[in-house]
């Protein structure tokens, strides 16, 4: 295992929380300004990918274990689907915006546009988990050895 410079480790430790908060902001304001679930989720994941690159996959795997990232991935997708199906039941059409009446589309206010922020959160969760999972998986594969065994030892840790 290669040695990592102390400066890189230190700075990335300070940077990661800020990147994470920025990602949250992009997701939460997705229905008002550029951004939304996908870019926000990628930013959230990149905070963890920074840890993975600068401090090793073991540390990143401790911060966000493989199984939890997988759960984020699937839960996000399911929440989105549930919103769609609720629209089917409550709004009369698949993905209908059934919360519109509760939170009407007032421009520039955080609590507006009905189901869109919920969907943004769901997508953000999914992309966060999914992208991190993909990069973690590739980094395990890259090291060589048996990838399945590599993943198994990481899950046990």
């Amino acid at each position: 295992m290669m040695t990592r410079s102390l400066i890189v480790q230190r700075i990335s430790r300070w940077l990661a929380p800020f990147i994470f908060i920025y990602g949250l902001q992009v997701i939460l304001y997705g229905h008002l300004s550029p951004g939304g679930g996908f870019p926000g989720g990628v930013i959230l994941a990149s905070a963890f990918i920074l840890i993975l690159i600068s401090r090793g996959k073991e540390e990143a795997g401790r911060r966000l274990p493989l199984s939890r990232a997988g759960r984020f991935d699937n839960t996000g997708a399911l929440v989105f689907l549930a919103v769609g199906l609720l629209g089917f039941v409550l709004g009369g059409s698949f993905l209908a915006n059934f919360l519109q009446r509760l939170f009407p589309g007032r421009p520039f206010s955080l609590l507006s546009s009905g189901t869109i922020p919920v969907n943004n959160l769901a997508i953000g969760l999914k992309i966060w988990g999914g992208i991190f999972l993909a990069v973690l998986f590739l980094s395990v594969l890259r090291v060589g050895g048996d990838p399945d065994r590599g993943l198994k030892t990481m899950e046990e840790e």
Binding site: S67, G70, R71, D73, N74, T75, A77, L78, L81, G84, L85, F88, F94, L95
Partner: peptide, 18 residues
Amino acid sequence: PLMVALPLGAAFVLPLFP
């Protein structure tokens, strides 16, 4: 829409219970 939503839901529920 159920023709697409049902299998999609199943695809994401299944990995939750490994």
